[in-house]
Amino acid sequence: MLAMRRAASTPRRDPAPSRLRYRLTRVWLRPGVRRVVNFGLPLMAGVLASWTVMAQFDVRGQVTAWASQLHEKIVDRPQFTITAITVPGVSQDLAEQIRVAAFVSLPASSLELDVNGVRERIEALDAVQRARVRALPSGILEIQAVERVPVVVWRAPDGIELVDENGVRVAEVDSRMRRPDLPLVAGPGAGGHVPEALALLAVAEPVGARVRGLVRVGDRRWDLVLDRDQVVKLPETDPLAALRRVMALEASGEVLKRDVAVLDMRDPARPMLRLTDRAMAELERLKTLKTGEDA
């Protein structure tokens, strides 16, 4: 009876968890928290322990030194050593320019060589259109370059340049006579119209021995300059057709062999001639004689 009274007077313990324990349980059930506790904390502890050991016994320095020695042994192997540079298929002058632009000190290791950097430096040369660089197993650095071929001499406002068929500069020269075998174009903007200039020179082939060059006027049109200071002024639009007409007149009447200073074709419907001073003087003399006879 006494035991029953004691049990009745003792309060029962609540089986529900406390509020703090409930919240901690909810937090633990989150996947992110469990991953941090199960993997993050052990990983962090391992990193800290490794760092402490490396700092205490200088393991980091030993590993770095070992890796450096291994790198040097591999890089310095004879099979990876470049001892020569070859530039096949180009002129001797360009080959020397390419060797200088490559900026490779021999002997060099093919494992440490920046092939793309070498190629970019070579392609920066005016005379090189594109290049290919590769290290051969024989210890030779082979540089294959496509050389730009100059087709005209351009007397530009700031100098004399050799340009290719696309108007890209190949080289700069100090005199037009450096390449007397190439036709001459002059005037601002002429270098940007090389294909048209070549087409005009091809049409003027019947008088090619007399052609001195083409002059770009106002970056709009061309003047064909011949010997004896003759000038054929071509129109802005369709200069090829106008020059073909001039060549037809030359074939039929040899108009360019006469005392003509300027043949103006800027208006193809109304070609105009301007005689030389000598021809004008002779014409005035004949007029004077005729006037005297009539009197």
Rank of each mutant, 00 (worst) to 15 (best):
L162C: 12
R228Q: 12
R244Q: 15
L125A: 04
A156F: 00
G208Q: 05
R130M: 01
A199F: 02
A186Q: 15
Q129K: 03
A65G: 15
W222H: 12
F103R: 09
E236Y: 06
P271T: 02
G89I: 02
A209E: 15
G89V: 03
E284F: 03
I122S: 09
E196Y: 02
G192A: 15
F57Y: 10
D158G: 00
P88G: 05
A131I: 04
S105L: 03
F57Q: 10
D223E: 14
D76G: 13
I122L: 08
Q62D: 11
E236C: 04
R19N: 10
D114N: 14
R60C: 01
V151F: 01
G139D: 04
M272W: 00
E120W: 05
A242G: 06
P235R: 10
K233W: 03
E282S: 03
V53Q: 07
T52L: 09
A186I: 06
G167C: 07
D223V: 05
S109W: 03
G213M: 13
W222P: 09
R6I: 11
R134C: 00
S50R: 00
A7R: 14
P183L: 10
V90A: 04
A281H: 08
P188S: 10
P88W: 03
L214S: 11
P107Q: 08
L182Y: 06
